[in-house]
Amino acid sequence: MRLLWLVFQMRMKRQLAYRTAAYAGIVTQVVFGLVLVAIFAAFYANGIKAPMTLPQVTTYIWLGQAFFAMTPYSVFPDAELREQIRDGSVATELLRPVDLHSLWMARTLASKLAPTALRCLPVIVVATLFAGMHLPPDIPSFLAWLLTTIGALVLISAFIVLMILTQFWTVAGDGLSRAVPGIAAATSGQLVPLALLPENIRVVFEWLPFSGMVDKPYAFWVGTRPVSDLPFVLGHQLLWTVVLVAAGRLILGRGLRRLTVTGG
């Protein structure tokens, strides 16, 4: 456990070293946020009644920008892990007396957390001051958001590690691990808040793991989900985390069994 903590810290340090990237990221996020808000404002100008008000959607969008670095479809955090499987240096990793899946989870958690930590606050501050973002309605909602955001971070990391592991099969490339995030983006609520989707589609997306990464935590902050839903949301996140970790371990076990590292 202590070792994993150290790995986590090292990763954090490495990520925090790239500050320019984070500052650049803030600019990206603000532009993107402005575009999305403009699109929704254009739709809301029609005056149709919707399950979310425009200020709520605006807040939701800005949350999505503030925490974009955390989402599974932002820039892939750990190209090194992919390379390791590809070039065979994963063999060295296997020599280490640590459980490989836990090791990679620790790394991924750190490489998701560090860039998020660097850029979430500036985006929230700018958006709240100048772009119509609102703070959570009350303290319980905020706490519910905070808890489920931590849950989301773990869930996302489990998903990413699973994606990296698929590379044991599709060696040369990054096919699956690059493309599935696109599906995640659409179903997680990052593009359109799930509440605005047609009812039958929304219900399906709510059950998929991806809503637990974006839509569910955000809804607490925005105030469209009552705090009493907290146990359900945490349960959803936990369940999927367990499933994804189990799947990851299974794949890892099988992948290692059939893995032949080339070379002398």
Binding site: G173, L176, G182, I183, T187
Partner: peptide, 26 residues
């Protein structure tokens, strides 16, 4: 490694179509 290419293409296609569908939903 054509399996990879096919996987990538079809998963991207699905993701993009989903994105298009959200536009339709709006």
């Amino acid at each position: 490694d054509s399996a990879n290419a096919v996987l990538w293409a079809s998963a991207t296609l699905l993701g993009m179509l989903l994105e298009w569908a959200t536009l339709w939903a709006l």
